[in-house]
């Protein structure tokens, strides 16, 4: 395994370095373990379920675009991820 340059992103304003190829969904978990991403209509936090772009529980706002699927998107340098809509 080569030591690749880390990718710097922010999750809800918090700066985080992740390995290249890390999914946005995984970065959200690394930033705040167990907290979850999406808030359901009933007001509970959810975590990703399917891991393959079907359930939509991983939805976050990425660089201002809402409802991006965190499990289908790799972290890119400078990416701003928000879980608070």
């Amino acid at each position: 395994m080569t030591t690749s340059v880390m990718v710097t992103i922010t999750v809800d304003g918090r700066v985080l370095d992740v390995r290249p190829g890390t999914l946005v969904a995984a970065a959200v978990e690394l930033a705040a373990p167990g907290r979850g991403a999406r808030v359901s209509p009933g007001g509970t936090r959810r975590q990703p379920l399917c891991g393959m772009g079907v359930c939509g529980e991983c939805r976050v706002t990425v660089d201002g675009r809402p409802h991006r699927l965190g499990c289908q998107l790799a972290c890119m340098p400078g990416m701003e991820i928000r879980t608070d809509g």
Partner: peptide, 21 residues
């Protein structure tokens, strides 16, 4: 099953391959 920490089996496998701790 809606509690954080519940995943599909293949679902968690996929997330872990994408860096999920």
């Amino acid at each position: 099953w809606t509690l954080p920490g519940v995943f599909g089996a293949g679902g968690l496998q996929a997330l872990v391959k994408g860096g999920w701790p």
